[in-house]
């Protein structure tokens, strides 16, 4: 069985100053880089499959600049000798279509039974590449899986995915197929030191963008035109309920004028009033309406 895992090096922004206001670009110095946490789950799942099915080949593929090799080596170190090949396509694009074209092009040549990739990347938050690849290779896909069982000997899998609020859908999917993995599928391991040392020594096959063969009419379908910082997230404040009488509201405001640094006032009153406030809060924020997700 051949398992292909697509892994991406992502920049994680943790500070509001990530966008350089003078240039309108993201400042990489203000981010940290890592293996996309969803892809990490995909790598882990591949390793786990191999632990059960010995006749199994794992190939890691990434698309990115030279620095992505470090990320690829981290992914390799998770599995050590269980991972057979590492491939880096030397290209970086903000357009998921271009990325998917390149990946599917390479994957088609290698051959595959299962393709695993993360449900989304935490940088561009796109969750498209996996699906694009599946469509380009004309294979079925299930997104956001949280359980993967390969039916023994059969070219079939049983998968589960979340539908929100903990509900899961169990599906049957034939192979070859692509699965994008969601949080909860597994808990990725931490690489051991011998595997890290091994990863440093392993060769990474490099494929240049221009060596990929696809039609000249294929080009990016989207283009990022601007980066900007969102307005600082304002805490959603609770305001005293307008349906209360003026006196009640006044009382509330007076009693609530305690010394507070941030947040809203501390509400006091009878248990009934307070319960009303809480329910109102729930209603206003749509927690009592029907399920959204």
């Amino acid at each position: 069985m051949k398992i292909i895992v697509c892994a991406k090096r992502v920049g994680h922004a943790y500070h509001s100053s990530t966008v350089d206001l003078s240039t309108g670009h993201i400042d990489p110095g203000k981010m940290v880089f890592m293996l996309n946490p969803y892809d990490e789950i995909a790598v882990e799942e591949a390793i786990r499959i191999k632990e059960h099915i010995s006749d199994c080949e794992i190939i890691l593929i990434t698309l990115g600049i030279f620095e992505a090799e470090e990320t690829l080596r981290y992914a390799f170190a998770m599995g050590g000798r269980r991972i057979n090949r590492m491939i880096r396509i030397n290209y970086e694009s903000f357009d998921p279509w271009e990325t998917a074209l390149a990946l599917s092009n390479v994957i088609k040549k290698i051959g595959f039974d299962i393709i695993l990739c993360g449900e989304k990347a935490i940088d561009d938050n796109c969750s498209q590449v996996g699906t694009f690849v599946a469509e380009l290779l004309n294979i079925p896909q299930v997104s956001g899986i949280v359980k993967l069982d390969i039916v023994p000997q059969g070219k079939k899998t049983l998968v589960e995915r979340y539908l929100g609020k903990g509900d899961r859908e169990e599906m049957e999917c034939c192979l070859p197929a692509l699965f994008t993995v969601g949080k909860g599928l597994n808990d990725p391991r931490y690489p051991s030191l011998p595997n890290r040392i091994l990863a440093e020594k392993m060769k990474i096959e490099e494929i240049d963008w221009i060596d990929l063969e696809f039609g000249s009419e294929e080009k990016a379908l989207t283009k990022v035109t601007k980066f900007f910082s969102p307005k600082p997230k304002t805490r959603k404040m609770f305001t005293p309920d307008s349906s209360l009488s003026a006196l009640e509201r006044l009382n509330l405001m007076m009693s609530g004028s305690s010394s507070k640094k941030e947040g809203s006032t501390v509400l006091e009153g009878s248990a009934n009033q307070l319960a009303d406030h809480l329910v109102k809060f729930l209603v206003q924020n749509k927690f009592l309406s029907k399920e959204d997700k």
């Binding site: 994680h12 993201i26 940088d123 989207t222 900007f228 969102p230």
Partner: peptide, 19 residues
């Protein structure tokens, strides 16, 4: 058309031109 979306852990908004 220009589409704005949140990315990078909600720290960055990006505007995309769907060509």
């Amino acid at each position: 058309l220009q589409i704005t979306k949140s990315a990078y852990n909600d720290q960055v908004y990006i505007t995309i031109d769907p060509l």
